[in-house]
């Protein structure tokens, strides 16, 4: 039952991405091309998603716990640091080059389009590489402290 629900939530999200136009790099890149063939559609995707989420979270997060889980997993980090800004800047660069963000690419995998598969494989490689570097940075001071 839980997995039926998570499957349906994924399907609703994917339909939103597909109908909104975020699975289409041409449309996404035109949204960023404010000085050229600008297509403001994606502002409406963001606006609709943000409006519903902001409203829905107000009701949902008032409860002590989620309906089918024990706790709300909310990010505890508050600090605005270099990794946040540099990482987000890098994400913007890659998004502007390829026209896919993670949420746009994952539902688009279902089209079987080769460009999506190439992008997703490269993105997963990027995630794994960054995680490997992060793990080293975390363990090095810990090791030094132990010595």
């Amino acid at each position: 039952m839980r997995f039926v629900l998570t499957y349906l939530i994924g399907l609703i999200f994917g339909m939103g991405i597909v109908l909104g136009g975020m699975a289409n790099p041409a449309k996404v890149l035109n949204f960023f091309d404010v000085a050229g063939t600008w297509d403001p559609s994606l502002a409406f995707v963001m606006g609709g998603a943000l409006g519903v989420t902001a409203l829905g979270y107000r009701f949902v997060l008032r409860r002590a716990s989620p309906r089918l889980a024990e706790v709300f997993h909310l990010p505890a980090l508050r600090q605005i640091d270099v990794p946040l800004v540099a990482g987000s800047a890098a994400f913007g660069l890659g998004w502007g080059l390829a026209g896919f963000c993670p949420g746009g690419a994952l539902p688009a995998i279902g089209t079987g389009d080769p460009a999506v598969l190439i992008f997703t494989a490269a993105m997963v490689a990027g995630i794994l590489a960054a995680r490997a570097v992060q793990a080293r940075q975390v363990t090095r001071p810990a090791r030094e402290a132990a010595q």
Binding site: A23, N24, G87, A89, P102, G103, A115, G126
Partner: peptide
């Protein structure tokens, strides 16, 4: 579903790598 890709395969590969590393350090995406 329309998936029109107006950029090169190289842009997809480089863009994908940078997106993957960027969202990992940045802690999230769109």
């Amino acid at each position: 579903v329309a998936v029109d890709v107006p950029v090169s395969t190289a842009a997809m590969i480089i863009g994908g790598l940078i997106v993957g590393a960027g969202v990992t350090y940045g802690g999230g995406c769109t």
